[in-house]
Amino acid sequence: MNKLREKVRKLLKEGKVAGYVGYMLKDSHPLPHFFTKERLEEVDQAIVAPGDARYPLDKLLQQVASRYPEEIFAIQVRGCDERGLNELYKWGQLDPEKVVLVGVACPQDQADYCECPGPWASVIDSGEKCQPVAKSKRVARIDALGEEEAFKEWLGYFQKCIKCYGCRDVCPMCFCKECSLEHPDLMSTGLVPPDTIFQLVRAIHMAGRCIDCGLCEENCPADIPLRVLYKKGNDLVKDLFGYEIGSLESGPSPWKFLGDESTLETKPM
C-alpha cells in the first residue's frame, strides 16, 4: 500500500497528473475517491479496495476526462480495469496519452472467484502476481448441458430480471448515449420481466468488449449469471475472429471493420 501511496503522492506533487481516481475509506466504507494536489494529505488514506467493494473506476474516469479533456489523470487499475482502458482507447472514448496507470495485482482468491485470465495490470504498484484462470468452469458447465436444458436454465434466469438496467449502468464499457435496450423498436417497453431477448441483446453488445470485471453480476439484484453469458461471448469472439479483449496488440475490435478478406463459411442448413 505504501508503494502505491508514494507513487500517487509523487505524481500529484510533481504535477504530472491533475488527479488520481482511486479508493478511500469513508466511514469505514471503501469508496471511490478523486485525489488532488490541493488535498495531498488524503493520499495517506488511499487504499486498494477489497475485491467485494469494487467500483467502475474506468467509467468515473471517462466522466472526469470528458469534462477536462486536456488534463492527465492517474487511475487505479486491476487487470480487468486495464483491459477496459485499452478497449476504451480503441473505441475512442479515452486518450491513452492522458492516462497514467497505478496498477494492482489481485490476490489468488479474487482471481479464482472471477475465473480471471489476467488478474494483474501491466504495472504493479500493489500486490503480487498470482495464478491466472485460463478456463471458466461456469461456462464449461453450461456448455455441457443439452440445448433444451440450457434454454430452461437461461429462461429461468431471464425471467427473474426486473429490468433495472443495473448491469448496463455499472458497466465501464457501456458508453453509448442511446441504448438499444431502451429503443422501443427493438425492445418491448413497459414489461417486467422484459423480453426474453433482453439479456441476449446485451450479450451481443458485450461480445468482444466485455472486460470480465464482473460488476454487472455483482450489481444484479436478481442474481442473473451475466458474467457466464459474457464470458462465453468473449470466448466465441476469440474462437471466430482471434480477437483478444483488452489487448492493444490484437488490433481493433472485429465489429469495427469489415476486413480485407472473409474466411468464415456459412453453416450448412
Binding site: 456448455d143 440445448e147 434454454f151 430452461k152 441476449l200 469472439v237 453453416k267
Partner: peptide, 11 residues
C-alpha cells in the same frame, strides 16, 4: 456466425 453460436449456448 457469432449469433448462431450465442443462440446455441443459451439453448
Amino acid at each position: 456466425r457469432f449469433l448462431q453460436d450465442l443462440l446455441k449456448f443459451t439453448g
